[in-house]
């Protein structure tokens, strides 16, 4: 340790100890070391530059070094998106349900005498010759044969068969369906019947007295005659007046207010279990 014993080193050691002690003592007495403070002031802009440069490099490097973290964060965000998507889908269902309930309530308000039961369509048997809807309500829910089935838009059809917890609905466009009807503008009375030709288009025909005042655009309602439908339910509107090839009489083609051409779009319906003067018992 030759160097450590030199006069030069000892002087250096004394200076070093002084440089350690003086700032410590000054700080202990609440004084500022002017030299340290001056050095710090001079170095400050350079420190700032170095710090910014380090931050830039750190930011660049972290893209690679934080890959796992980013991947994990990405996964978490994906999960969050999935969760939000599910929530959105649930909200859409709730919104649909809400709209449905509003319509339900609207019908209930318009027809306070109706005893309604809501039902979901669980299957569509859309064959070439007939369209049968199967609902999730049956006799156990008080559903019986020949009860009218409606939506907020109008008449759908009637219950043609009722099981324990299901029922089948024949739509008004079926050829087996016959409904007593009248037009709103002139009150012309007629019968709306299903037709094999018009069924696929969601239409049916209305027969009426030849001298009656009927126009395209007239709306057709149930007249309440017959044993199924109550009075005043909207069936549809007249879209054309044509000559029946078989009977050589004029018929009005009625487009059903419920879109029966694409029944698969129907999700829920209401079954009228009873109304004033009618309990559905036939």
């Amino acid at each position: 340790m030759k160097f450590a014993k030199t006069k030069f080193f000892i002087i250096c050691l004394i200076i070093a100890v002084a440089l350690v002690l003086v700032p410590a003592i000054l700080t202990a007495f609440g004084q500022v070391d002017i030299v340290r403070s001056g050095l710090k002031t001079v170095a400050k802009p350079f420190e700032w530059c170095a710090s910014k440069f380090a931050s830039a490099i750190d930011g660049f490097v972290s893209v690679f070094t934080d890959y796992d973290d980013l991947q994990e964060e990405n996964q978490q965000l994906k999960d969050t998106i999935d969760s939000l998507e599910n929530e959105r889908a649930d909200n859409a269902v709730l919104k649909q349900e809400n709209e449905w309930l509003k319509k339900f309530l609207d019908i209930k308000n318009k027809n306070p005498d109706f005893e309604l039961a809501d039902a979901d369509i669980i299957s569509y048997e859309a064959g070439n010759y007939s369209t049968i809807l199967t609902l999730n309500k049956g006799t156990v829910h008080g559903i019986k044969k020949n009860m009218p089935v409606i939506t907020a838009d109008g008449v759908v059809g009637y219950v043609s068969e009722a099981g324990l917890d299901w029922c089948k609905v024949t739509t008004i466009t079926e050829s087996t369906s016959k409904v007593g009807a009248y037009t709103d503008r002139t009150g012309v009375i007629g019968t709306v019947e299903g037709s094999p030709e018009l069924r696929r288009e969601g239409k049916c025909s209305m027969t009426y007295s030849p001298d009656s005042d009927i126009k395209v655009g007239d709306r057709v309602y149930t007249s309440g005659t017959g044993s199924i439908y109550p009075d005043g339910l909207l069936i549809g509107k007249i879209v054309s007046i044509e000559a029946d090839q078989a009977t050589r009489t004029l018929i009005a083609v009625v487009e059903a207010s419920v879109d029966l051409a694409s029944v698969e779009n129907l999700q829920s319906v209401m079954i009228v279990r009873g109304y004033v003067g009618h309990t559905g018992d036939k």
Partner: peptide, 19 residues
Amino acid sequence: YFIDALGAIPPSFSPLILL
């Protein structure tokens, strides 16, 4: 002394340690 001035709070021993 310089690095103590920049980044340390007294008591700091860098001059002594480096020497």
